[in-house]
Structures are given as structure tokens and as C-alpha cells.
Write a protein that binds this DNA or RNA. Sequence first.
RNA 1: GGGGGUGUAGCUCAAUUGGUUAGAGCGCCAGCCUGUCACGCUGGAGGUUGCGAGUUCGAGUCUCGUCACUCUCGCCA
Length: 606
Amino acid sequence: MHRYRTHTCGELRKENIDEAVRISGWVHSVRDHGGIIFIDLRDHYGLTQIVIDPSQPFHKGVEHWRAESTICFTGKVVARIPEAVNPKLATGEIEIVAEEMEMLGEAKVLPFQVAKEEECNETLRLEYRFLDLRRESLHNNIILRSKVIARIRELMVAEGFMEMQTPILTSSSPEGARDYLVPSRVHPGKFYALPQAPQQFKQLLMTSGFDRYFQIAPCFRDEDARADRSPGEFYQLDMEMAFATQDDVFEVNEHVLHKIFTEFSDKQVDDIPFKRLPFKEVMEKYGTDKPDLRNPLIMQDATELFRDCDFKAFAGVVDSGGVVKTIAAKGCAGKSRKFFDDMVKFAQSVGSKGLGYLRWNDGEIQSPIAKFLSEETLGQLKELGGVGDGDVMFFIADKLKPTTEIGAAVRDELGKRLGLIDPDVFKFCWIVDFPMYELDDDGKVEFSHNPFSMPQGGMDDLLNKDPLEILAFQYDIVCNGTELSSGAVRNHNPELMIKAFGIAGYDESVVETKFPALHRAFQYGAPPHAGIAPGIDRIIMLLADEPNIREVISFPMNQKAQDLLMNAPGHVEHHQLRDLHLKVHLPKKVEKEIEDQSEPEGGTTD
RNA sequence: GGGGGUGUAGCUCAAUUGGUUAGAGCGCCAGCCUGUCACGCUGGAGGUUGCGAGUUCGAGUCUCGUCACUCUCGCCA
């Protein structure tokens, strides 16, 4: 018989009755009836009920066994009497009558309960992550993650991709997020950087003649956390294809994502091909480049209808170059006064001066602004929104940018409050035709996304078009309002690349020094190539229906990028710093904190 | 760095307008119980209300400061 188990805790069935077995696992619960004692023993695979008869010599100590201790039981599988069958358990038709038991690992009193799915303080969960990971929902999320990644690998290989590794210790990339730096021992004063993405390496692999590359790639960025953004590190399904167009990338991703989302969720997934929406259009309709298409509401422009109207607040905005946007919401005119007041408050909370609305309710217009509008204007608005009795139109007026942002927030909020968002579907779309350039805060032309993207009109556009009009072969894939990834057809032509950088104010030497590898590689016959890198953590979040990314990561950091279990980041020994030629120069505040902390220990002696 | 939220027993939460000795469930400890499966029953221990000031006859509650966590803006080519 195996030292620890002949079966797992999820395995035994009626067919095993009368077998002598041994199983090991964690004490999930103890039910002590004075005489007979029941124990639910749990492992990765399931729960099995152990029965301990008073005649057993180890019966006495059982009442002191704590939940979450690990124990090995040897005994016989028996059928439960019909009334005692537990249909909620896969193993519910049998139980094991224990004949021998061995305590493998005793548990102290728990900081929180494992057998119960109860909300629990985040700090405590992270400090005791190994316990947290035993809890059913988190455990299942991590299992889901493993299965999804395994399936992604299968599907990518089936699509003709090769998984390849790229360096973790590499050079700092000059643009983008803050890097994590690793000091070099051999080269005093020099640093490696952890890759923000394997971007340049995968492009180099394409110039090296590999045709389809992918990698479940760790990426490191020293930026602040969000609910859907883990600080420090995350994983991407990084991929790149040679001699490929934008459509080729879309096709592969549609195959893979559609299969993954269909196979690992019961929600209804959009048919492929997914919708393709130009950036300009989504900004106008949804106010964001990651629209949640489950929400049917759209924004429409009503600027001209308010020009010179008697509603001075809006007319004034239009006069000074602003815009008026409207969102038509069908069938909600009967909502309470409080609903509309709350929506106004909400709009104000996201930076709006107010929120206008027209309610066509029971044949009359209820609205704070209707009295300022002519019959004709009201008619035109009705037509614009396609509304009638029982419907409402909301209005936001401001400069274009704030109007767009407020409109997006109001659209989201209305979608939620009116229950318009179907929780049981996955709505995908590609956002295409991103602009190549935009103006930065100082009014200077800057790359709006990836500087390596191919301009759609090639050299012709770069030479002849207003930079702000140039579109790039740059795209995003969005699901239910979550941006899964950006991607692009890359600019593989050195001349085009230099020209593209030139428009943003960088001369060739900048390209050469900042991106020496690509600059060199593209001069020796680079293939046209394109790629994308969907975020693994976000895919799992969507599949697991988790609002927070920590729920799909085994050992996440907290919001301040600390690992509370491993105590990272931590202080290091002086000799380590010396080896690395480093001296730390701390902010005064931190220096004082360290002094204050060390004083009680170092300052007094008994 | 800015804004919002939270902080009360080991855990999850309650505590009327500022008013008696700060409560409950789970967990923990002790006892009872031979068919439960969130077992049940009885009893018990457990609190610097994050921390520090202030207002007040009186503060878990109000004010200020501070710390921690979290959400968010900035940031994330």
C-alpha cells in the first residue's frame, strides 16, 4: 500500500466498496457525536467522509484535531445507509471506516476559516496566502488558470506557432512604463532591466526567420496597481507572425479566444469574426476606446441643435467651441424623481457641471430644460434619439474631451442602473484605425501608441498628411469593456521608421541609440510582421467572473507592490550592496522611520 | 502625489441623537451527545473600538492629525 494514499479524496465511489484504502488530506470539518465521529477529509480533488468508531484507539484524541491539519487514514470503504447518502458530494455514496490514522501535519488555530467562503481582510489573506489558496473559490480560479494556459498552448501550437523564451534580464527600454532595474555586479554602475514586454525580442525573432512565435510571457512594469492591473508583474499571451496582415492576426486570435471563452465559460460568446470598430467611431459613440458592448446605449452629437437656443448654459458652451452629447435611454421615463436626481449627482461626481434630460412621460415632457427649447428643436431631438413616449434623453455639454469622458461614465452608470448589461454574455470587438500621432500636453506631436506601428498609408502618408490624420495599423481587442490587448502591424522598413520617428521629433540617432537591435536588424531583410499580446490575467478574470485581478493570481502583491508573505521588497545585507557597487540614498522621511524602528532594539541593553 | 471608502473580539459584522457594564454569528476553550455532513446542546474565555490629540459632565459615535488597507485619477510606449 502506498505510504500516503491509494486514492485521492475525490475518487472513491460505490464501485470501491469493501476495498482497503488509504487517503490523506486536510481536515475540512470534524463532527463529534460523542461516540461516532465524522471527519470530512479534503484534498485538491474533493472531500471524503471518514467515520471513526469509539472502539478505535485513536478515537480519544480526535476531538482536539483542528481544522486544516493534514492526516492520513487507512480503512475500509463502506456504503452509506440510504438516508445518509450526501448528494452534494461526488463521494457521497460511500465513507471510509478508519482503522489506522497518522497525523502528518498539525495546524495551529487558523487566522481565518478555510472551509467557509467568507469575506476576509485582504492583508490577512495575503499574509496567509497558502491558507487562502486552499479555499474553494480561489483554488478553483488557480485551477482554471492552469487549464486555460494549457489549452492556449495547444491551440497556439495547432495554429502553427512555436513557443520560445526571451530574456528576463535585458536592457532598459527608453519609453513606456517605469522599468524594474537589476544592478550588474560585473559592470559597476550598469543595470539590466526586466522586460516590460518581449516586444523587441519577438520582432527580432521574426527577422531571424521564425514564422509564428508565441510565449506565455511574464512582463514587468513598475506602475501603480488597479483592480484589473497587478503591480509589478503580469502575464501575456505574446505572439508575433511574419508576412502577416492585420487580418491574419485577427483570425488567429478569434480562433483561440473564441474557443477559450466558449470552452471555459457558460456565457454566450460572440460569433467570429468579432466586430471591428474604428477608433474614431467608438470615441464618438462610447466615449472610450474600450467600450462595453453589452451596454446598448450610445452617445450622439446634438451640438447643432443647441446652437443659439434659449438654454443659455448649453448655447454658451456651443458658442465657445464646446459640444453637446446626448444619450437616449428607452423606456425609463417612468423612473422616480430620485433616479434622475441621482443621475445628475453622479454626473457631477465625475466632473460634469450638470446633466440635462428630457422625459417624455404620459404624453407630456418633464424636464428642467424643455421650457427653453422650441417645438421644432424638441422634434429634431426626438428624431435624433429615435425616442417617443416613455423614453428619456440625457444631455452633457462641455468641451469635447470632458464631454466624452463624462458621457462614457454616464453611459456606464445608466447601463448599470437600468439593468441593461447582460451578465451572461461575452461581447468582443476589435478597435482599429488608431491614430499614429496625437498632441501631448505641450501641443507637441507624439506617438499615440506604439512607435513601432506601421502607418497605414506608408511613406506617402508620412510625407503628405497632417500627422494627426495619419492612421496606424494599430488595434485593440476588447471584451465586455476590458482591454485584453493592444497589437499592431509593425513598421519593418528602416526608412519609414526613421521618418515616423522624425515626425515625432526624434532624429535617426535616437532610433539608433534607443533601439539599436531593431535599427540594425531591419537593415538585413526584415519580413513584414504583426502581433498582439492578450493579457492572461484579464482573460482569467473574465472567465472566473472576478472583479479583482488578485483573485486569479496565486501570490499577488498588495496595492503598494509588496509581497506580504515573502516580505518583498526587503532590505539586503551590506555586503550584497557592496558587491553590486550600490549605496542607498534614502529620502529623509524613510531614514527617520528606520531610525525610529531600530532604536528600541539597538539603543538599549539590559 | 491627488480624491473617495473602510478600520470595533482571531474572522465577518452590529451598537438609535454623543449616554448604563461595547453585542451577535463563526472560530477558540471546557462539558454533554453513536449517523452527522455549516451536526446539535450547555457553559466559558476573549476588546487600548488602528494610533495620537481635541471638544464635552460623558466619545466606538463629533473635530483635527496620523497610520494601514482598498477603489480611483495621475501613470500603464
